[in-house]
Simulated assay, not measured.
Amino acid sequence: MTDAAPVLGLLLDVDGPIASPVSRSVAIPSIARDLVELANGGVPIVFNTGRSDAFIRDEVVPQLLSAGLGDTARVWAICEKGAVVVRITPSGFGEIDVDEDLAVPPAYADAIRELVHDSYDDVVFFDETKRAMVSVEQRLDVSAEHFTSRRDAFDSDAARELEAQGLGYEWGMTIVTDAAGNVPFRIDPTIISTDIESVRLGKDLGASKFLALLEKDGAVLPSRWRTMGDSRTDYAMADWLHERGYDVIHVDVRPADGVPETPYPVRHHDSLIHDDAGALYLSAWVRMLRGELSDDDSV
């Protein structure tokens, strides 16, 4: 007898739809409760994020465990945009798998740590929890406006250090090749950070790894998917699923950046953004799981 396919599958960015970009925590209690009801109800879930596994371990996992995550739940964290993979169970984290081929050279990480210490520690901190990427993040005591006013200067310095170490990179419209003509890295500024990372990383890589994990686990794959994020790069999850024939809808919780033309539906709330919007859509998906709602197009 073949198990029925789940009602849907979820690929979720963390900063924005799950964790508040202001407090950097899961601040809305219903989010963890709804995630656990979905997971315990057979919905496969991945936190497909640029965050480190330590952030997920400290800020997300305790709330899932407190809400009663079950033994049959299929929940993963794919962190650092595909470089780090770990399963989440009622016992917490499983074994952490790091793709070292996607890591930034240690010498570059050391140089950026020193750069932050010397010139930017009044506005950002160096994220020591990253295993493959190099990330600096806005300090909680610094305003978004002040961070934004200093970010371009930091990004320029980060680019100069890449060149000093002979590393090719892309940054916006700027492309610099290494001695072999390659462009292995990118500088990716966000609303609260700058990431320096392999160009092979991305939310589409996370999507592909998640479906491979589900198949390896013997799961029946859903035909219907929801992806959710707060930036244009998060659309890559839905792009990847759509290109492979899945029924996918993307939820954009920060549409002020502009909603692109896509071959699949994109939803966003008229007034709610970030985790307020994320909580609303999670509750709608719970109602879909319960059979109380046929679709979330009314949200």
Rank of each mutant, 00 (worst) to 15 (best):
W171R: 08
E80V: 08
P222W: 01
T262F: 01
V248G: 09
I196M: 15
R200E: 13
D257Q: 07
D230N: 11
S271R: 14
S283C: 04
R151E: 13
D297N: 14
F210C: 11
V142N: 14
L205I: 10
F55E: 12
S193N: 13
G258C: 09
L167Q: 09
I187G: 09
E145Y: 07
A107F: 04
S208E: 14
V220W: 01
V116T: 04
M237Q: 07
V86W: 00
Y169A: 09
D127L: 01
V22T: 09
G16M: 06
V104G: 08
L272A: 14
R226K: 07
L38E: 13
K130D: 00
G70M: 00
V60W: 05
F185D: 03
G92Y: 11
D118T: 08
T129R: 01
G206F: 03
H146Q: 12
S52M: 07
E80Y: 05
G166F: 03
V85F: 07
E128F: 01
V86H: 02
V104S: 10
P62R: 05
T262N: 06
V14E: 03
R254F: 12
F210P: 12
F126P: 06
L221Y: 10
V116N: 05
L115Y: 03
G168M: 12
V104P: 10
D152N: 14
A132P: 10
Y169K: 11
H250A: 14
P17C: 07
G181N: 02
E170H: 10
L162I: 07
D53E: 05
L282I: 11
G202P: 13
F154H: 04
A109C: 11
D141I: 09
V248A: 08
G94W: 00
V116C: 05
R186L: 09
Q138P: 02
F185C: 03
A236E: 15
E161M: 13
S231M: 08
A153R: 13
G16N: 10
S208T: 09
A153Y: 04
M1L: 12
P62N: 08
V116A: 07
L272R: 12
F126V: 04
R200S: 10
Y120E: 11
W225H: 02
